[in-house]
């Protein structure tokens, strides 16, 4: 769907992006992650053709990115804003028409979305009369109104209360189901895990990690298992476990009066071996591998890169 090939951007002597290459699969929700100042905004602006790359090329559906693609992209910037003294309906129409929609098309679509979000009575209100959250809703509608193939959301949940954030998340996933490809730039890792299937991590103007979330999680897996066993002989189990594995007490919550541990497996001492050992001592009521959180992956990747430098 979207291919970013060796894209670099410099501002004077400062390098904002250094030969970044990425591929965003069609129909995916792609998380663009990175600390502040990493170069995410520059990359997003290049995708939106707000700025041009100094080197490298961006392809959309196999075609080099051109002005005609503007109508196929929807962009919700992190720093949101609308004309304060313009009326909601008039403004939404204006922005939709700048994206290439006809007046009739835009009006029909706007009515649909305004009804869906139950905000039809805002049409004649000025933006300055709305709360921040209300204005965000209008901005979300304006972003998706022209049914773009590629949607770029920069911190889409900031400024929303939990109820509305949930509503927006639901809408984003619905758009994905309808075939849109979504790029999602955020710092909120829990939303990345919930929504994205692919990610890329940009740090100090370079891409340091990308791929399917499940694969990245595999890459960063710790081989630690949370286990719980109902046993009559706790001390024997503990001794035997410690002889073979690295063991730590677990904070796992359980309904049963079970013995709980965090056990680290290895290539030699596999999870299968662990399970067999546990089953020997009683009923195994909990056995799960710890999946690294995106937050820990993010922190680890960034600190690895920084310490390497």
């Amino acid at each position: 769907m979207l291919k970013i090939d060796q894209v670099s951007k410099h501002y004077g002597e400062y390098t904002a992006l250094d030969a970044v290459s990425l591929e965003v699969p069609k129909g995916s929700v792609f998380g663009l992650l990175g600390p502040n100042g990493a170069g995410k905004t520059s990359l997003i602006r290049i995708l939106n053709q707000i700025i041009l790359p100094d080197e490298g090329t961006v392809y959309l559906d196999g075609e080099q990115l051109q002005p005609k693609h503007i109508s196929q992209i929807g962009y919700l910037p992190e720093e949101r804003g609308l004309y304060k003294s313009m009326k909601v309906g008039e403004q939404a129409l204006y922005l939709a028409r700048l994206k290439g929609m006809t007046k009739k098309e835009a009006t029909t679509q706007l009515k649909y979305w305004f009804e869906k979000f139950e905000i039809s009575d805002w049409w004649h209100k000025k933006i300055q009369e709305l709360s921040k959250g209300m204005a965000q809703k209008v901005q979300f509608i304006v972003t998706v109104l022209h049914k773009p193939k590629l949607l770029i959301f920069d911190e889409p949940f900031s400024g929303f209360d939990p109820v509305n954030a949930e509503l927006i998340a639901k809408e984003i996933l619905l758009l994905k189901d309808e075939g849109a490809t979504i790029i999602f730039s955020t710092h909120r890792m829990e939303s990345v895990e919930k929504m994205c299937d692919h990610i890329a991590l940009i740090h100090q103007s370079k891409k340091i990690l990308d791929g399917k979330i499940s694969e990245i999680q595999k890459q960063y897996k710790t081989n630690i298992f949370d286990v719980g066993v109902v046993t009559n002989d706790e001390s024997k189990l503990t001794t035997e476990l410690k002889e073979v594995f690295e063991v730590k007490p677990s904070k796992l919550y359980s309904f049963h009066d079970a013995v709980k541990f965090q056990v680290k497996t290895s290539d030699k001492n596999t999870s299968e071996k662990l399970l067999q050992l546990l089953q020997k001592h009683g009923e195994v009521i909990h056995f799960s591998e710890q999946i690294p959180t995106m937050n820990s992956i993010f922190m680890q990747a960034v600190s690895n890169k920084t310490s390497l430098k």
Binding site: N48, Q49, I50, P67, I70, I73, Y75, P77, E79, R80, G81, L82, Y83, K84, L95, L98, K99, Q139, V142
Partner: peptide, 17 residues
Amino acid sequence: IEEKTSRVIEVIVSSVK
């Protein structure tokens, strides 16, 4: 200045040059 301070500019320049 209004377009810049209200931040609507980023939305506009993603649609027009």
